[in-house]
């Protein structure tokens, strides 16, 4: 049997519940005041487009040279672009640099002029014809996509609840459902509070967070289910058995969380803008699920089990009293008959 620490995870359910609730309230306030921090791919942005003629297409790698020159000029102007896209056709092509929406048009126009002048001085590229345009972009929000994500998350949680309630215990299904909702709320709230730039990938990240939460819940409940089958645990009081079970699962959940976070942090750092936009909310989701898997889920199951035991005991007591009363009445009737 595992030794018990003085610090008990399972008797602090209110504290564990208060954390996601506080974060959710803070997140909601910030959301209604400022909204999410939209990434340039879904928010207003500015772009500087350098258009070129077919000369640049005539030799392989020349468009890369053009990009290198532009990137150097952008760096010299102490500006930074969010991303860039290159395109070509038989008439020529263009490189479009995306900048933050607050970048001044005049700055970008001056930068474009500097690039065109620099191109005129470049030994290879000076033979091409170039032009520059500054554009503003306003992305149309994909509301249908967000609604689909909300429905998907709801359905995922319901499936998890039903499956765990049937295959494990009802209390575990309920705990998995609450943990899933809490994890999602914490992930979205922290994304809002930490002003992490979001794209439409946030919707997929929310689905990911729910799946991860379900995975963590099953890891936790698998262990509990196995332990509760043993005679040793059946003989223990509910709170003690739950505390023992929780202490045997938290290392596994923490290890899973650490592996996932390390891997996702590496992807966020080196994986480029698109991967980063997805990775940051996902990391928050993994951290939230790890917290709920270690603290919240066992505490909730304990509360539900204790409540269940109390109700069962109260029910048995009621039956016992009713039987006793019936027995007394029968005894009275028998004595009345004898008299």
């Amino acid at each position: 049997m595992t030794k018990t620490n003085s610090f008990k995870i399972t008797d602090k359910v209110l504290i564990w519940l208060a954390i996601p609730v506080v974060l959710l309230i803070a997140g909601l306030i910030l959301f209604f005041v400022l909204g999410f921090n939209p990434d340039a791919s879904i928010a207003d942005s500015k772009s500087l487009v350098i258009t070129h003629d077919a000369f640049v297409n005539s030799e392989e790698g020349m468009q890369d040279d053009l990009h290198e020159l532009c990137a150097q000029e952008i760096k010299d102007a102490k500006l930074s672009f969010i991303d860039y896209a290159v395109s070509q056709n038989e008439m020529g092509g263009k490189i479009e640099y995306t900048f933050a929406p607050e970048t001044e048009n005049a700055t970008l126009i001056a930068l474009g002029d500097d690039i065109i002048s620099a191109l005129g001085e470049n030994n290879t590229l000076k033979f091409g014809i170039y032009s520059r345009t500054v554009s503003t972009n306003v992305v149309n929000y994909a509301y249908d996509y967000i609604w689909r994500a909300a429905i998907s998350v709801g359905v995922a949680l319901v499936i998890a609840f039903v499956y765990i309630a049937v295959r494990y215990r009802f209390s575990m299904g309920l705990a998995a459902l609450i943990c899933g909702i809490a994890d999602l709320a914490v992930m979205l709230s922290l994304t809002c509070i930490l002003r992490i730039p979001v794209t439409t990938a946030l919707a997929t990240a929310a689905v990911f967070a729910v799946l991860y939460s379900v995975l963590v819940s099953t890891v936790s409940f698998n262990r509990m289910r196995n332990l509760f089958k043993t005679e040793e645990y059946q003989a223990m009081p509910v709170t003690e058995a739950m505390e023992q079970a929780a202490s045997q699962t938290y290392k596994r959940i923490a290890l899973l969380g650490i592996c996932a976070v390390v891997f996702f942090v590496l992807l966020a750092i080196f994986g480029g803008a698109a991967v980063r936009a997805f990775a940051l909310p996902v990391i928050l989701g993994v951290l939230a699920s790890t917290f709920s898997g270690v603290c919240l889920a066992p505490s909730l199951v304990t509360v539900f089990k204790v409540q269940g035991e109390n109700m069962k005991a109260a029910g048995e007591e009621k039956v016992r009293l009713a039987n006793k009363q019936a027995e007394e009445e029968r005894a009275k009737k028998r004595s009345a008959k004898k008299d």
């Binding site: 359905v155 995922a156 499956y163 765990i164 919707a203 997929t204 729910v210 379900v214 995975l215 698998n222």
Partner: peptide, 29 residues
């Protein structure tokens, strides 16, 4: 039982999500 339960549950959720979701979410599912 634990391994099957974990995989079946995740598979079932992903399966249903694939039919509900669109775009990037559908690819993910």
């Amino acid at each position: 039982a634990p391994v099957l339960d974990t995989h079946i549950l995740l598979f079932a959720i992903a399966f249903v999500l694939y039919f509900i979701s669109i775009g990037e979410m559908a690819v993910f599912s």
